[in-house]
């Protein structure tokens, strides 16, 4: 699974993307797994109210299932326009 990070999540984690083999079945489980990877991840996922997620480029919720997902992206609330 490809994991992508944008804006301050990318800066806190220190890289824009990574490949990950995971048995997580929901976004929330994946976040728990990522938090265990070190303090940079723990800092990025400290306040989940400030984090949005897209699974295969569709905005979704933290409890969304991951079955078959190829790409999961984490980012702050969007500020375009």
């Amino acid at each position: 699974m490809q994991i992508l990070y944008f804006a301050w999540l990318r800066e806190r984690i220190g890289h824009p993307k990574e490949e990950l083999e995971t048995s997580a079945s929901t976004v929330a489980e994946l976040v728990e797994e990522l938090r265990g990877r070190g303090p940079r991840y723990a800092a990025a996922f400290e306040d989940m109210a400030a984090v949005r997620v897209a699974v295969d480029q569709e905005l979704t919720e933290l409890d969304a299932p991951l079955d078959g997902a190829r790409e999961v992206a984490f980012f702050p609330p969007m500020t375009g326009g």
Binding site: F6, A7, W8, A54, L59, A73, F75, P76, P77, M78, T79, G80, G81
Partner: peptide
């Protein structure tokens, strides 16, 4: 279109000083 673009299209603004613009 503008209302949805503002909070549904994945863009993020960063100021020259280094801080990310809050939604």
């Amino acid at each position: 279109i503008m209302d949805f673009l503002k909070s549904r299209a994945p863009f993020w603004k960063k100021e020259a000083g280094g801080s990310w613009v809050d939604a």
